[in-house]
Amino acid sequence: SNGDTSPTVSMAELDHQAQIISKSHLETCQYLREELQQMSWQNFLQDEVESYQSKPREVMWQLCAVKITEAIQYVVEFAKRIDGFMDLCQNDQIVLLKAGSLEVVFVRMCRMFDSQNNTVYFDGKFAGPDVFKALGCDDLITSVFDFAKSMCSLHLSEDELALFSAFVLLSADRSWLQEKLQVEKLQQKTQLALQHVLQKNQREDGLLNKLRCKVSALRSLCSRHTEKLSAFRAVYPDIVGTHFPPLYKELFGA
């Protein structure tokens, strides 16, 4: 539908693309579903929750920055294994990761989320939103939990999640891309592979549109994270400068 950029791809190619992306996802997903299921009964006890709540704001921020950075390193590995990603110019690889790695972390979060208890796997156990109170970002935390819950309600399989993550990462509308057309081709091929897998898995017709709607929610979460970080940095510039992971600072311009 997009004229010149629409690739002509065969079903076999789409299958191949879907398989590579699923494999890349499974190799880099940080925790396997089985591992998470085994840990699912481990919730923080009240005194542990209170201990997180009583941490100084900057200590909790630093802990979360470390956890986000760890998750992002796995996303970088995921990107590297997507067929075609390493063929993009280095500028565009950086642009896509800078803009999209946290979005993929939020997408992946639904695998680590327990909808029934409204908890997420964090620092060794499952944590509710109250664990993050010391950050002073209640509204953002609520939105992140709501997003994870709504992603969970779609019950995506690992291959669907893998392709959606790749689709998010390969967004061709990011600013500062040098070879936009190459990224567009890759994203369209990924979207076709996602569509193909959704059909193969006999998912409902509207699912692709529901997933497309998630893209704007992801962008809003990430820009709110940036806003919260700048507000934090304004108060604690030295903490960010000296205690935050270098990769986090590089990605979020801290």
Binding site: T69, Q73, V76, E77, Q90, Q93, I94, K98
Partner: peptide, 20 residues
Amino acid sequence: KEKHKILHQLLQNSTSPVDL
């Protein structure tokens, strides 16, 4: 390049992420 030193490093590494 200097601005994204670690990302460059991660992209060029053929194995697991460097210790950050």
